[in-house]
Nucleic acid binder design. Structure first.
Lengths: 230, 230
DNA sequence: GACAATCAGATTGTCGACAATCTAACAAGA
DNA sequence: TCTTGTTAGATTGTCGACAATCTGATTGTC
């Protein structure tokens, strides 16, 4: 019996690569909310035909970060303050659920991975790499969902994450500077290592509320100066 | 100012119609779990080219009821007992959240709609139309999510619903007969009309548990006789 | 000048054909 | 007999061209 394990090989369709490219462009704010995606132009830039591009766009529409109007075009979703509010309030519920489900599953491997991701956030912060900072922070947050052993929950959280990441990116871009102090997640990580599940759940809720207030304030600013896109 | 309200006109792309057709076929169990969808055959049957069919399939993959393996094909998802368990446990959380959010928003229009949907379930039950029975029961259940005024929640619930509907359809098909007594939802509806929010939340949880046990038992049966599809 | 009809340009939706890849059957060799 | 190499057929992925639809500018009329 062979002991080495192999991970699945990469998807090698153009479609998959296009999805990844577009998603990244949207989540990092390269493509602005409301902006229209011109199929011909993008397909020429990427040197692919419109078929795989269109299929990729359908996926992202279903993923919730694009929206499509027949014969009019496909657009990056517009971000409203209410959207952010909705996403965050649901995220709280999912976090509490996830913590409850993964609590008993914690083991050494979990703790190691927790430290690893925490370290990645701190590194990105030191590097002043805001994009990576957002990415790693969300990955740290996602660990509890990955360990909850509930595929539907994980999938749901990942969908939410896309939007959160997009909102954060806009937020950062608007302020033009790196943000949170390096130790923002210290308490969160410590609680996940501890023995008081209720405390961890409570903190997750409050910690989120903190970032949220700031983000919501920014979003309300957007409301007054809407994007010209759509 | 005009007072009449117009609903959006129908999407007139082939793609949208194909999505609807395929979704219905999957959710009613016409297409079995694990079954492969042959693009050429289906496109010929529908008298369309493969392009809009493929785009439609990408949407349904992202919707979670199809799964795709590059160069191998696209398949109806397989239903495992764990999937059902996962979906239901998450559904409980979402229901509780929805009830909390919509509680203060209840008004006469809500109560009317509640009655209307409840009546639809009872009608389908009297008609022994099991497919419609499932549809209407889920619509009744979905009302609280529609009134929670949280678009992300609604979207999430609708995704979950697709799977639940699929599971239910299989369940029904396997038993070959109509099921629940006509008054299953009486208590649920009554509590939603009442003044005790906690009680409504508790009942939603317990009521779901009831159906769930039956469904899970069926699912465990499936485990032992896996589909030959994929 | 205001308004409706028309038209050209651009863009999305759809089609049919070709290229890349997979599967399964068969043959060859250890 | 088991493994490996080959090949034919079927199926998915991608392409370029055409059809349907939208947008806005222009023209003509009152």
């Amino acid at each position: 019996m062979v002991k080495t394990e192999f991970s699945p090989i990469a998807d090698t369709t153009r479609r998959a690569e296009i999805v990844a490219l577009l998603r990244r462009a949207i989540l990092t704010g390269q493509l602005e909310p409301g902006q229209k995606l011109n199929e011909l132009r993008i397909s020429e830039q990427m040197r692919v035909s419109r078929a795989p591009l269109r299929e990729a766009m359908r996926e992202l529409v279903q993923e919730g970060i694009l929206t499509s109007i027949p014969y009019a075009g496909t657009f990056v979703i517009n971000v409203t303050a209410k959207d952010i509010d909705d996403a965050y309030s649901l995220n709280k519920v999912l976090d509490e659920f996830a913590i409850e489900r993964m609590w008993k599953q914690r083991d050494q491997r979990f703790l190691d991975e927790l430290d690893r991701r925490h370290e990645a956030v701190k590194q990105a912060t030191r590097d002043r790499d805001t994009t990576r900072q957002i990415e790693t922070a969300l990955q740290l947050h996602g660990l509890i969902h990955e360990w909850a052993d509930n595929s539907v929950l994980l999938e749901t959280w990942q969908r939410l994450t896309s939007r959160l990441q997009m909102y954060f990116a806009l937020h950062q871009q608007a302020r033009k500077e790196a943000v949170p102090a390096e130790n923002v997640h210290e308490t969160y990580v410590a609680l996940l290592k501890g023995d008081d599940m209720r405390a961890a759940q409570r903190h997750a809720r409050e910690h989120i509320d903190l970032d949220f207030e700031e983000l919501l304030a920014y979003a309300r600013g957007l409301e007054r100066r809407p994007s010209k896109g759509a």
